[in-house]
């Protein structure tokens, strides 16, 4: 799936950029002042802009990943201490009724459960610096339970759908920008955001659970 979407994002962007350039080129009058234009071919043409964007994004990706390392190390270190102290088990036991239904195949005292819980709590509080390392820790634990290491497990997908539609109690960035652009009531979006995110979570979880249900049915027709 990602395979197709990825290649089509690239094909479509190149085709559109090329189309725009051909259209532009057809419109430009060839006889007037080509010298000034030639200089900046890379910035003037859509294909040039697309190329620049691709190169910039490749650099940015590395910057983001390197920037993550320090915070990741801090949280993974803390999580390891909490694990050894037996704290994560206590947390996991408290929410067992919910996790039992969402992740039926994971034992409720597995470290994956506590890591997922801490990730979701952190993102609810808007602590994205803490949420990402904890989420990656959760993925790492889920991967240990995954029989096929190259293929996403049902539990991973359930977790990611909950994660991407994450409910944030205070969408701080959006509020700050509203305030800076002169909104009379910047935090007006808090309740609508929570409702929209809750709806996204409900629909997302229902979707993955339906898919998992029908897949299971297909595998065991006797039941």
């Amino acid at each position: 799936m990602l395979n197709h979407i990825w290649i089509w994002l690239i094909i479509i962007s190149l085709l559109i950029a090329a189309g725009k350039d051909i259209y532009q080129e057809a419109l430009t009058d060839k006889s007037s002042g080509t010298e000034a234009v030639e200089k900046n071919l890379n910035e003037r043409t859509s294909l040039g802009q697309v190329t620049n964007a691709a190169l910039d994004a490749a650099g940015l990706a590395v910057k983001i990943a390197i920037g993550l390392i320090g915070i990741m190390a801090l949280w993974l270190g803390l999580m390891r201490v909490a694990e050894q102290a037996g704290m994560t088990n206590v947390l996991a036991r408290m929410v067992k009724p919910v996790t039992k239904r969402l992740f039926p195949s994971i034992p409720s005292d597995h470290p994956a459960i506590s890591a997922m819980l801490m990730n979701i709590s952190a993102s609810m509080l808007g602590l994205s610096n803490a949420a990402t390392p904890l989420g990656l820790k959760a993925m790492d634990e889920l991967q240990k339970l995954n029989p096929d290491k190259e293929r996403a497990s049902d539990d991973m997908i359930t977790f990611l759908v909950i994660n991407t539609s994450a409910i944030t109690l205070i969408p701080a960035t959006a509020i700050a920008i509203r305030a800076s652009l002169g909104s009379a009531n910047p935090q007006q979006i808090v309740i609508p955001s929570i409702i929209a995110a809750t709806m996204a979570t409900i629909v997302g979880v229902t979707t993955v659970k339906l898919i998992q249900f029908f897949k299971q049915k297909k595998q065991s027709p006797g039941n």
Binding site: M1, L2, I5, Q143, K149, E150, R151, A152, M156, I157, L160, V161, T164, S165, A196, A197, M199, A200, T201, I202, V203, G204, T207, V208, I211
Partner: peptide, 19 residues
């Protein structure tokens, strides 16, 4: 290192559209 993401993206996008 998961390469086959299966139905993760469509499910995530359905949730996004709902939101």
């Amino acid at each position: 290192n998961i390469k086959n993401t299966r139905y993760a993206l469509p499910a995530g996008l359905i949730a996004d559209v709902a939101g």
